[in-house]
Design a protein around this nucleic acid. Structure first.
Lengths: 139, 139
DNA sequence: CTAGTTGCAAAGAGTTTGCATGGCG
DNA sequence: CGCCATGCAAACTCTTTGCAACTAG
C-alpha cells in the first residue's frame, strides 16, 4: 500500500476507500465527506498530504480537467494495469471507462511512430458522452 | 469575434492576443502579464469574464489538467477546425500539437463503434512527451 | 522514546462577485 | 443618454503550511 514510514490508521482508511472507488475520479471534498459519513473522518490536510504522496509514488493520479475547479484523484489499479491504457470519462454521468482493447494499443503506437509522441496514460483522460447518456439525450 | 453586446477595446485586445497565440494553452496570469508587457493591460476580472464567455460560446476552451492549479485557455481556431480533431500537449515543453491525420479520425470512429462513446475534442487533451523533449531526455 | 503523522487554523493562490465609474452604440 | 462593461477590492474556494499534540514502531 503506501511506502511512507508509518502505517497509520488514517492512511489505511483513505487507501481502503480509494480501493473501493477505484473506478471513480473523486475530489478531496468528496472523499472527506464520504469518510465522515462512514464515521471515519480524516482531516483535509492529511488527505491532501497522503493523496499527493500516493501520486508521487505513482500509485494514484490527480486530474483537474473536470469543469470543477478542484482536482480529482484515483487509485491506479495494478490488477487492472491502469497505467497501460487510456481512460474515457463521461462528462454527463461521470462514469470512467477503461480503454484496454487491442486497437487502442495500436493508437499509442501510431502516435509514437507517426507523430513521435509518447502518450502518458496516467495524465490523459478522454472526455465525451457514453452510450447511456447519449441515449438519454445528455450532452 | 465575440457575440456580447458591446465591442469594447479590452475585448479586441484579448481576442487579438488569443489569436496570435492560438497554438498555446495559456493561463489567465500569463495572458494578463503578456498584455501588460505589451502596454495594453486588462483587468483580471475582465479577462476571466470575457474568457468564460468565449468558452460558453464555443469559441475557446478551458482546460485545467496542467499540474498547475489554474486553468488554461485557448481559442478554438475555426480555420484549423480545431473542434474536429484531438490535441496532444507535451508535459515537458508545453507545446501543443494538432492530431488531424486520417488514422486519428478512425480512432474516433472506433471508440464510437466499439465503445459507444462520443469523444468531445474540445475537452480532451492527450498528455505525453514530444520527440524534441524525449531526445533531450525530458520526462 | 523518537521521528513521522495528524489536524487545526492561518496563510496562499486562483477565481468570482459587488459596485461605482466609464464607454459603446 | 441608457445600458453594458470595466476594474478595483472584497469575498470565496481549494490547497498548502506551521505547529503543537499524538502515535506507530
Amino acid at each position: 500500500m503506501q511506502k511512507s514510514t508509518y502505517n497509520t490508521k488514517q492512511k489505511k482508511i483513505i487507501y481502503n476507500f480509494l480501493l473501493q472507488n477505484k473506478d471513480r475520479l473523486m475530489t478531496c471534498d468528496e472523499i472527506a465527506d464520504s469518510l465522515k459519513a462512514e464515521g471515519t473522518p480524516v482531516g483535509k490536510a492529511t488527505l491532501y498530504r497522503f493523496l499527493d504522496s500516493l501520486v508521487s509514488l505513482g500509485d494514484a493520479r490527480k486530474l483537474s480537467n473536470e469543469d470543477k475547479k478542484c482536482a480529482a484523484y484515483q487509485l491506479l489499479d495494478k490488477e487492472m494495469n491502469c497505467k497501460s491504457h487510456l481512460h474515457m470519462k463521461c462528462t454527463c454521468c461521470g462514469e470512467l471507462y477503461h480503454l484496454g482493447c487491442e486497437f487502442m494499443h495500436s493508437v499509442g503506437e501510431h502516435i509514437l511512430n507517426h507523430h513521435q509522441f509518447i502518450i502518458d496514460n496516467s495524465k490523459t483522460v478522454i472526455y465525451g458522452v457514453c452510450k447511456n447518456c447519449s441515449a438519454k439525450g445528455g450532452i
